[in-house]
Simulated assay, not measured.
Amino acid sequence: MIEKGLKGIVAAETLISHIDGEKGKLYYRGYEIRDITKRYSFEEAAYLVWFGHVPDVTQLNTLKKQLKDNRDLQENLRVILDQLPPSMDLMSVIRTVISAEAGNLDYGWKPTTSQAIRLTALVPTIIAYRKRQLEGKEFVSHRSDLDFVANYLYMMNGKVPIKAHIEALETYMILTLEHGMNASTFSARVTASTESDLVSAVTAAIGTMKGPLHGGAPSGVIELLNEIALIGDAEKVIRERLAKGEKLMGFGHRVYKTRDPRAISLKAKLLEMAGEDQWLDLAMEVEDTAINLLAELKPGRSLYTNVEFYAAAIMKAINMDAELFTPTFTASRMVGWTAHVLEQAENNTIFRPQSRYVGTFR
Protein backbone atom coordinates (compact mmCIF):
# COMPACT_ATOMS: atom_id res chain seq x y z
CA MET A 1 0.00 0.00 0.00
CA ILE A 2 1.31 3.43 -0.96
CA GLU A 3 0.68 6.50 1.20
CA LYS A 4 1.08 9.32 -1.27
CA GLY A 5 2.93 12.24 0.24
CA LEU A 6 3.93 9.91 3.11
CA LYS A 7 0.71 10.90 4.87
CA GLY A 8 0.52 9.27 8.29
CA ILE A 9 3.94 7.63 7.96
CA VAL A 10 6.15 8.08 11.03
CA ALA A 11 9.68 8.80 9.80
CA ALA A 12 11.39 10.14 12.93
CA GLU A 13 11.15 10.39 16.69
CA THR A 14 11.28 13.84 18.25
CA LEU A 15 11.42 15.54 21.63
CA ILE A 16 10.62 18.95 20.19
CA SER A 17 6.84 19.11 19.78
CA HIS A 18 3.68 17.03 19.79
CA ILE A 19 0.42 17.61 17.91
CA ASP A 20 -2.77 15.88 19.05
CA GLY A 21 -5.06 16.55 16.11
CA GLU A 22 -8.05 14.75 17.60
CA LYS A 23 -8.03 16.75 20.84
CA GLY A 24 -6.73 19.99 19.34
CA LYS A 25 -3.56 20.14 21.43
CA LEU A 26 -0.08 21.41 20.60
CA TYR A 27 2.93 21.01 22.87
CA TYR A 28 6.46 22.40 22.73
CA ARG A 29 8.79 20.18 24.77
CA GLY A 30 5.80 18.99 26.82
CA TYR A 31 4.40 22.47 27.51
CA GLU A 32 0.92 23.14 26.11
CA ILE A 33 0.90 26.02 23.67
CA ARG A 34 -1.78 28.00 25.52
CA ASP A 35 0.41 28.06 28.63
CA ILE A 36 3.43 29.15 26.60
CA THR A 37 1.67 32.10 24.98
CA LYS A 38 0.29 33.23 28.32
CA ARG A 39 3.57 33.03 30.25
CA TYR A 40 6.54 33.38 27.93
CA SER A 41 8.12 35.73 25.40
CA PHE A 42 9.27 34.78 21.90
CA GLU A 43 12.85 34.43 23.16
CA GLU A 44 11.77 32.19 26.05
CA ALA A 45 9.74 29.98 23.70
CA ALA A 46 12.68 29.78 21.28
CA TYR A 47 15.02 28.81 24.11
CA LEU A 48 12.58 26.10 25.18
CA VAL A 49 12.45 24.67 21.65
CA TRP A 50 16.23 24.82 21.13
CA PHE A 51 17.44 23.70 24.56
CA GLY A 52 14.54 21.65 25.95
CA HIS A 53 13.74 23.70 29.03
CA VAL A 54 12.53 27.16 30.00
CA PRO A 55 15.48 29.52 30.58
CA ASP A 56 16.34 31.15 33.88
CA VAL A 57 17.07 34.88 33.89
CA THR A 58 20.75 34.49 33.06
CA GLN A 59 20.09 32.04 30.22
CA LEU A 60 17.38 34.26 28.79
CA ASN A 61 19.59 37.35 28.88
CA THR A 62 22.39 35.41 27.20
CA LEU A 63 20.07 34.31 24.39
CA LYS A 64 18.73 37.84 23.92
CA LYS A 65 22.29 39.15 23.64
CA GLN A 66 23.21 36.46 21.12
CA LEU A 67 20.19 37.30 18.97
CA LYS A 68 20.99 41.01 19.12
CA ASP A 69 24.68 40.46 18.35
CA ASN A 70 23.80 38.55 15.18
CA ARG A 71 21.24 40.95 13.70
CA ASP A 72 23.63 42.89 11.50
CA LEU A 73 24.08 41.94 7.86
CA GLN A 74 27.67 41.48 6.78
CA GLU A 75 28.78 43.56 3.82
CA ASN A 76 28.63 40.70 1.30
CA LEU A 77 24.97 40.10 2.17
CA ARG A 78 24.14 43.79 1.72
CA VAL A 79 25.85 43.77 -1.68
CA ILE A 80 23.76 40.79 -2.76
CA LEU A 81 20.56 42.43 -1.53
CA ASP A 82 21.39 45.60 -3.45
CA GLN A 83 21.92 43.63 -6.66
CA LEU A 84 18.81 41.48 -6.62
CA PRO A 85 16.13 42.58 -9.12
CA PRO A 86 13.11 44.40 -7.65
CA SER A 87 10.81 41.83 -9.25
CA MET A 88 12.27 39.01 -7.16
CA ASP A 89 9.78 37.81 -4.54
CA LEU A 90 10.74 38.16 -0.89
CA MET A 91 10.89 34.45 -0.10
CA SER A 92 13.38 33.99 -2.92
CA VAL A 93 15.35 36.93 -1.56
CA ILE A 94 15.52 35.35 1.91
CA ARG A 95 16.54 32.01 0.40
CA THR A 96 19.30 33.61 -1.67
CA VAL A 97 20.76 35.74 1.12
CA ILE A 98 20.66 32.95 3.70
CA SER A 99 22.40 30.70 1.18
CA ALA A 100 25.13 33.33 0.76
CA GLU A 101 25.58 33.48 4.54
CA ALA A 102 27.28 30.07 4.26
CA GLY A 103 30.47 31.85 3.21
CA ASN A 104 30.66 33.98 6.34
CA LEU A 105 31.15 31.23 8.93
CA ASP A 106 32.09 27.58 9.05
CA TYR A 107 28.70 25.91 8.76
CA GLY A 108 30.04 22.40 8.35
CA TRP A 109 28.77 19.24 9.99
CA LYS A 110 27.63 19.08 12.80
CA PRO A 111 25.29 22.06 13.15
CA THR A 112 25.38 24.06 16.39
CA THR A 113 22.89 26.03 18.41
CA SER A 114 25.02 29.14 17.91
CA GLN A 115 24.55 28.75 14.15
CA ALA A 116 20.80 28.32 14.66
CA ILE A 117 20.65 31.53 16.70
CA ARG A 118 22.63 33.46 14.09
CA LEU A 119 20.43 32.38 11.17
CA THR A 120 17.27 33.13 13.14
CA ALA A 121 18.56 36.60 14.02
CA LEU A 122 19.37 37.40 10.39
CA VAL A 123 15.98 36.73 8.81
CA PRO A 124 14.08 39.76 10.23
CA THR A 125 16.93 42.02 9.15
CA ILE A 126 16.87 40.61 5.62
CA ILE A 127 13.11 41.18 5.42
CA ALA A 128 13.33 44.72 6.78
CA TYR A 129 16.29 45.65 4.55
CA ARG A 130 14.46 44.44 1.44
CA LYS A 131 11.19 46.14 2.39
CA ARG A 132 12.85 49.51 2.94
CA GLN A 133 14.91 49.06 -0.21
CA LEU A 134 11.85 48.52 -2.41
CA GLU A 135 10.14 51.51 -0.80
CA GLY A 136 13.12 53.69 -1.64
CA LYS A 137 13.77 54.32 2.04
CA GLU A 138 16.97 54.19 4.05
CA PHE A 139 17.57 51.01 6.00
CA VAL A 140 16.81 51.31 9.72
CA SER A 141 19.44 49.65 11.90
CA HIS A 142 18.33 47.54 14.83
CA ARG A 143 17.93 48.90 18.34
CA SER A 144 19.65 46.98 21.11
CA ASP A 145 16.96 47.96 23.62
CA LEU A 146 14.24 46.19 21.62
CA ASP A 147 13.59 42.46 21.75
CA PHE A 148 13.10 40.18 18.74
CA VAL A 149 9.53 41.00 17.68
CA ALA A 150 9.54 44.68 18.62
CA ASN A 151 12.81 45.20 16.78
CA TYR A 152 11.46 43.43 13.69
CA LEU A 153 8.54 45.86 13.52
CA TYR A 154 10.85 48.80 14.25
CA MET A 155 13.29 47.96 11.45
CA MET A 156 10.48 47.60 8.94
CA ASN A 157 8.65 50.81 9.79
CA GLY A 158 11.28 53.08 11.34
CA LYS A 159 9.30 53.74 14.49
CA VAL A 160 8.78 51.97 17.78
CA PRO A 161 5.56 49.93 17.50
CA ILE A 162 2.72 50.23 19.98
CA LYS A 163 2.48 47.62 22.72
CA ALA A 164 -0.72 46.03 21.38
CA HIS A 165 0.85 45.37 17.99
CA ILE A 166 4.00 43.92 19.55
CA GLU A 167 2.00 41.58 21.76
CA ALA A 168 -0.29 40.44 18.95
CA LEU A 169 2.57 39.70 16.55
CA GLU A 170 4.68 38.09 19.28
CA THR A 171 1.83 35.73 20.13
CA TYR A 172 1.52 34.78 16.46
CA MET A 173 5.26 34.22 16.10
CA ILE A 174 5.38 32.02 19.21
CA LEU A 175 2.49 29.96 17.84
CA THR A 176 4.21 29.43 14.48
CA LEU A 177 7.83 28.84 15.48
CA GLU A 178 7.34 25.06 15.48
CA HIS A 179 4.72 22.59 14.25
CA GLY A 180 6.04 19.08 13.95
CA MET A 181 6.99 17.26 10.75
CA ASN A 182 5.36 19.63 8.28
CA ALA A 183 6.58 19.88 4.67
CA SER A 184 9.30 22.48 5.27
CA THR A 185 10.59 20.83 8.44
CA PHE A 186 10.74 17.52 6.60
CA SER A 187 12.75 19.22 3.84
CA ALA A 188 15.20 20.53 6.41
CA ARG A 189 15.61 17.14 8.08
CA VAL A 190 16.04 15.31 4.77
CA THR A 191 18.80 17.72 3.76
CA ALA A 192 20.46 17.47 7.17
CA SER A 193 20.29 13.67 7.03
CA THR A 194 22.88 13.74 4.23
CA GLU A 195 25.22 15.51 6.68
CA SER A 196 24.89 18.71 4.73
CA ASP A 197 25.25 22.00 6.62
CA LEU A 198 22.61 23.99 8.51
CA VAL A 199 22.44 26.73 5.87
CA SER A 200 21.62 24.15 3.19
CA ALA A 201 18.96 22.60 5.40
CA VAL A 202 17.14 25.85 6.15
CA THR A 203 17.50 26.99 2.54
CA ALA A 204 15.63 23.84 1.52
CA ALA A 205 13.00 24.62 4.16
CA ILE A 206 12.59 28.20 2.93
CA GLY A 207 12.08 26.95 -0.62
CA THR A 208 9.41 24.57 0.64
CA MET A 209 7.72 27.25 2.74
CA LYS A 210 7.46 29.41 -0.38
CA GLY A 211 4.86 27.06 -1.88
CA PRO A 212 1.29 28.38 -1.53
CA LEU A 213 0.02 25.08 -0.11
CA HIS A 214 2.30 25.56 2.90
CA GLY A 215 2.99 29.21 3.69
CA GLY A 216 0.50 31.28 1.73
CA ALA A 217 -2.88 31.01 3.49
CA PRO A 218 -3.19 34.49 5.13
CA SER A 219 -3.39 36.28 1.78
CA GLY A 220 -6.64 34.49 0.99
CA VAL A 221 -8.05 35.48 4.38
CA ILE A 222 -7.22 39.13 3.73
CA GLU A 223 -9.14 38.96 0.46
CA LEU A 224 -12.13 37.54 2.33
CA LEU A 225 -12.00 40.23 5.04
CA ASN A 226 -11.58 42.99 2.46
CA GLU A 227 -14.63 41.79 0.51
CA ILE A 228 -16.75 41.56 3.66
CA ALA A 229 -15.63 45.03 4.80
CA LEU A 230 -16.56 46.44 1.37
CA ILE A 231 -19.99 44.78 1.13
CA GLY A 232 -20.79 44.93 4.84
CA ASP A 233 -22.51 41.53 4.96
CA ALA A 234 -20.38 38.60 6.13
CA GLU A 235 -23.10 36.00 5.72
CA LYS A 236 -23.85 37.03 2.13
CA VAL A 237 -20.19 36.90 1.07
CA ILE A 238 -19.49 33.57 2.74
CA ARG A 239 -22.68 31.92 1.44
CA GLU A 240 -21.84 32.99 -2.11
CA ARG A 241 -18.29 31.65 -1.86
CA LEU A 242 -19.40 28.32 -0.48
CA ALA A 243 -22.17 28.05 -3.09
CA LYS A 244 -19.50 28.38 -5.79
CA GLY A 245 -17.55 25.55 -4.21
CA GLU A 246 -14.71 27.83 -3.14
CA LYS A 247 -12.50 26.89 -0.22
CA LEU A 248 -12.91 29.25 2.71
CA MET A 249 -9.36 30.28 3.53
CA GLY A 250 -8.50 30.34 7.23
CA PHE A 251 -10.85 27.48 8.11
CA GLY A 252 -10.03 23.80 8.49
CA HIS A 253 -6.67 22.10 8.97
CA ARG A 254 -5.03 18.92 7.70
CA VAL A 255 -4.04 17.83 11.20
CA TYR A 256 -6.53 19.33 13.66
CA LYS A 257 -9.95 17.65 13.64
CA THR A 258 -11.30 20.15 16.13
CA ARG A 259 -10.36 23.77 16.91
CA ASP A 260 -6.77 24.72 16.10
CA PRO A 261 -5.19 25.40 19.52
CA ARG A 262 -3.04 28.13 17.98
CA ALA A 263 -6.15 29.94 16.76
CA ILE A 264 -7.63 29.67 20.26
CA SER A 265 -4.52 31.19 21.81
CA LEU A 266 -4.33 33.94 19.21
CA LYS A 267 -8.01 34.79 19.65
CA ALA A 268 -7.54 34.98 23.42
CA LYS A 269 -4.81 37.58 22.90
CA LEU A 270 -6.94 39.55 20.46
CA LEU A 271 -9.91 39.57 22.84
CA GLU A 272 -7.69 41.55 25.18
CA MET A 273 -7.47 44.13 22.39
CA ALA A 274 -11.19 44.20 21.54
CA GLY A 275 -12.26 47.64 20.35
CA GLU A 276 -8.69 48.75 19.65
CA ASP A 277 -8.64 47.78 15.98
CA GLN A 278 -11.48 47.46 13.48
CA TRP A 279 -9.87 44.57 11.59
CA LEU A 280 -9.47 42.47 14.70
CA ASP A 281 -13.09 43.13 15.64
CA LEU A 282 -14.22 42.26 12.10
CA ALA A 283 -12.25 39.01 12.18
CA MET A 284 -14.01 37.86 15.34
CA GLU A 285 -17.39 38.68 13.83
CA VAL A 286 -16.55 36.83 10.60
CA GLU A 287 -15.34 33.78 12.51
CA ASP A 288 -18.70 33.27 14.24
CA THR A 289 -20.63 33.70 11.01
CA ALA A 290 -18.34 31.40 9.03
CA ILE A 291 -18.34 28.56 11.58
CA ASN A 292 -22.15 28.61 11.74
CA LEU A 293 -22.45 28.53 7.94
CA LEU A 294 -19.85 25.79 7.57
CA ALA A 295 -21.74 23.67 10.11
CA GLU A 296 -24.96 24.29 8.16
CA LEU A 297 -23.63 23.79 4.62
CA LYS A 298 -20.87 21.23 5.27
CA PRO A 299 -22.25 19.15 8.16
CA GLY A 300 -19.90 16.68 9.80
CA ARG A 301 -16.76 18.28 8.40
CA SER A 302 -15.70 19.97 11.69
CA LEU A 303 -14.27 23.02 9.96
CA TYR A 304 -13.01 25.58 12.47
CA THR A 305 -10.76 28.60 12.41
CA ASN A 306 -7.06 27.87 11.92
CA VAL A 307 -4.13 30.00 13.02
CA GLU A 308 -3.80 31.75 9.65
CA PHE A 309 -7.26 33.33 9.99
CA TYR A 310 -6.28 35.45 12.95
CA ALA A 311 -2.77 35.87 11.62
CA ALA A 312 -4.29 37.68 8.66
CA ALA A 313 -6.24 39.98 10.97
CA ILE A 314 -3.07 40.80 12.89
CA MET A 315 -1.12 41.52 9.72
CA LYS A 316 -3.91 43.77 8.51
CA ALA A 317 -4.05 45.61 11.85
CA ILE A 318 -0.32 46.36 11.84
CA ASN A 319 -0.42 47.41 8.16
CA MET A 320 1.77 44.56 7.00
CA ASP A 321 1.52 44.02 3.25
CA ALA A 322 0.46 40.60 1.98
CA GLU A 323 3.91 39.86 0.54
CA LEU A 324 5.30 40.00 4.10
CA PHE A 325 3.01 37.29 5.52
CA THR A 326 4.98 34.20 4.53
CA PRO A 327 8.37 35.84 5.21
CA THR A 328 7.16 36.70 8.74
CA PHE A 329 6.03 33.10 9.17
CA THR A 330 9.53 32.13 8.03
CA ALA A 331 11.17 34.45 10.57
CA SER A 332 9.47 32.55 13.40
CA ARG A 333 9.71 29.04 11.92
CA MET A 334 13.51 29.34 11.67
CA VAL A 335 13.51 28.30 15.32
CA GLY A 336 11.66 25.06 14.66
CA TRP A 337 13.60 24.21 11.50
CA THR A 338 16.97 24.65 13.17
CA ALA A 339 15.85 22.73 16.26
CA HIS A 340 14.86 19.79 14.06
CA VAL A 341 18.17 19.89 12.19
CA LEU A 342 20.04 19.86 15.49
CA GLU A 343 17.95 16.91 16.63
CA GLN A 344 18.48 15.08 13.34
CA ALA A 345 22.23 15.50 13.67
CA GLU A 346 22.29 13.90 17.12
CA ASN A 347 20.96 10.54 15.89
CA ASN A 348 21.25 10.70 12.14
CA THR A 349 19.96 8.24 9.57
CA ILE A 350 19.69 9.36 5.96
CA PHE A 351 16.13 9.55 4.61
CA ARG A 352 15.82 7.16 1.68
CA PRO A 353 12.18 6.26 0.90
CA GLN A 354 11.33 3.99 -2.01
CA SER A 355 9.14 4.60 -5.03
CA ARG A 356 7.12 2.09 -7.02
CA TYR A 357 7.73 1.93 -10.75
CA VAL A 358 4.42 2.03 -12.66
CA GLY A 359 5.76 2.32 -16.21
CA THR A 360 6.13 -0.38 -18.81
CA PHE A 361 9.10 -2.65 -19.55
CA ARG A 362 10.27 -2.81 -23.17
Rank of each mutant, 00 (worst) to 15 (best):
E13N: 11
H18P: 00
G21T: 06
E22K: 13
K23L: 15
G24T: 13
K25H: 11
L26E: 11
Y27Q: 11
Y28L: 05
D35R: 12
D35Y: 13
T37M: 07
K38H: 08
R39C: 09
F42S: 04
A45V: 10
W50G: 00
F51W: 04
H53P: 01
Q59G: 09
L60C: 04
N61K: 13
T62N: 10
K68E: 12
K68Q: 14
D69F: 06
R71A: 06
R78K: 15
I80P: 07
L81Y: 05
D82T: 12
Q83R: 13
Q83T: 10
P86F: 10
M91N: 10
S92D: 14
S92K: 06
V93E: 02
T96I: 10
S99H: 11
A102L: 13
A102G: 00
G108K: 01
W109M: 03
K110N: 08
K110V: 13
Q115G: 14
I117V: 15
I117M: 03
I117P: 02
R118N: 04
L122F: 11
L122D: 07
I126R: 02
R130T: 15
K131P: 06
K131V: 15
L134G: 01
E138L: 10
F139D: 10
S141R: 08
D147A: 10
F148D: 01
N151S: 06
Y152M: 08
L153C: 06
Y154D: 01
Y154H: 11
N157M: 07
K159Q: 14
H165G: 08
L169W: 03
Y172V: 12
I174H: 04
L177K: 02
E178V: 07
M181G: 01
M181R: 06
N182T: 13
S184N: 05
A188F: 05
V190D: 00
S193G: 02
S193A: 02
S193W: 00
E195L: 15
S196Y: 05
V199L: 05
V199E: 01
A201G: 03
P212W: 04
P212A: 03
G215C: 10
E223S: 14
N226W: 03
I228Y: 10
D233Y: 09
E235I: 09
V237H: 01
E246T: 05
K247M: 13
G250V: 07
G250C: 08
G250Y: 07
G252L: 13
G252Q: 08
G252R: 10
H253I: 11
R254V: 07
Y256F: 13
K257A: 09
T258D: 14
P261E: 12
P261L: 12
E276Q: 15
D277W: 03
Q278I: 14
M284I: 07
E285K: 12
E287F: 06
A290F: 05
A290R: 01
A290P: 03
I291Y: 09
I291H: 06
N292P: 00
L294I: 09
A295D: 13
L297C: 05
L297Q: 08
P299E: 05
S302I: 12
Y304V: 02
T305P: 09
Y310L: 09
A311I: 07
A312N: 02
A313V: 07
I314P: 01
K316R: 15
E323M: 14
E323L: 14
P327Q: 05
T330G: 09
R333Q: 03
R333N: 04
T338A: 12
L342V: 14
E343M: 07
I350E: 02
R352N: 06
Q354V: 09
S355G: 11
R356C: 00
G359W: 04
T360R: 11
